[in-house]
Computed example of a mutant assay.
Amino acid sequence: MSSLFARFYAYRAAQNGISANISAQNAACKGDWIQPLVGAINCTLWVVYGLWRPKKDISGAVANAPGILFGGVVAITALI
């Protein structure tokens, strides 16, 4: 159950990062792009690992799939 709460707070942090990057008036206020990008890559690797191993780990793949989207969106909004 604690893992569910950790995922919820991670997604809330991603939402806050996206809104902060979009509402920033200048480049100095924007967030860092490398950390969410590395997070998205990490989630991608876990999804691939969960789906390609002989005994499928569907729950792990499903749990990490939103991290790909959120990490990518946060990284992109930090660069724009």
Rank of each mutant, 00 (worst) to 15 (best):
residue 11 Y to N: 06
residue 78 A to I: 00
residue 66 P to I: 07
residue 58 I to C: 03
residue 7 R to H: 15
residue 19 S to Y: 07
residue 8 F to A: 02
residue 26 N to V: 13
residue 6 A to G: 07
residue 72 G to I: 06
residue 76 I to R: 07
residue 14 A to E: 01
residue 26 N to Q: 08
residue 10 A to P: 11
residue 50 G to Y: 09
residue 24 A to L: 04
residue 63 A to Y: 12
residue 36 P to W: 10
residue 55 K to D: 14
residue 42 N to E: 08
residue 1 M to A: 14
residue 27 A to G: 06
residue 5 F to W: 13
residue 8 F to Y: 13
residue 18 I to L: 05
residue 59 S to M: 09
residue 29 C to T: 13
residue 62 V to F: 06
residue 77 T to V: 00
residue 40 A to I: 15
residue 23 S to Y: 00
residue 48 V to T: 14
residue 19 S to L: 01
residue 50 G to A: 12
residue 8 F to G: 02
residue 40 A to N: 09
residue 72 G to K: 09
residue 20 A to C: 03
residue 76 I to N: 05
residue 25 Q to L: 02
residue 27 A to F: 12
residue 59 S to T: 13
residue 72 G to Y: 11
residue 65 A to Q: 03
residue 31 G to V: 06
residue 34 I to T: 07
residue 2 S to I: 15
residue 32 D to A: 05
residue 65 A to L: 15
residue 59 S to F: 10
residue 35 Q to E: 05
residue 53 R to T: 15
residue 70 F to Q: 07
residue 3 S to M: 15
residue 63 A to H: 06
residue 49 Y to S: 10
residue 71 G to D: 06
residue 52 W to T: 11
residue 34 I to L: 04
residue 57 D to Q: 12
residue 72 G to H: 05
residue 71 G to K: 09
residue 38 V to S: 04
residue 6 A to L: 14
residue 17 G to I: 03
residue 29 C to E: 00
residue 2 S to R: 14
residue 8 F to E: 02
residue 11 Y to L: 01
residue 10 A to G: 13
residue 79 L to R: 15
residue 63 A to Q: 14
residue 47 V to M: 09
residue 68 I to Q: 11
residue 78 A to F: 03
residue 52 W to V: 11
residue 1 M to P: 02
residue 77 T to R: 02
residue 39 G to N: 02
residue 48 V to E: 08
residue 3 S to A: 12
residue 42 N to K: 08
residue 22 I to S: 01
residue 75 A to W: 10
residue 19 S to E: 00
residue 4 L to S: 10
residue 45 L to Y: 07
residue 61 A to W: 07
residue 28 A to I: 06
residue 10 A to N: 13
residue 47 V to A: 08
residue 42 N to T: 14
residue 56 K to H: 01
residue 59 S to I: 12
residue 45 L to D: 04
residue 48 V to S: 09
residue 72 G to S: 07
residue 40 A to H: 13
residue 57 D to V: 00
residue 30 K to E: 02
residue 46 W to R: 12
residue 58 I to D: 03
residue 22 I to Y: 04
residue 61 A to R: 11
residue 40 A to D: 02
residue 2 S to Y: 08
residue 1 M to K: 09
residue 31 G to D: 00
residue 79 L to M: 12
residue 15 Q to G: 07
residue 66 P to M: 04
residue 50 G to V: 09
residue 21 N to K: 03
residue 23 S to W: 03
residue 35 Q to S: 07
residue 19 S to A: 12
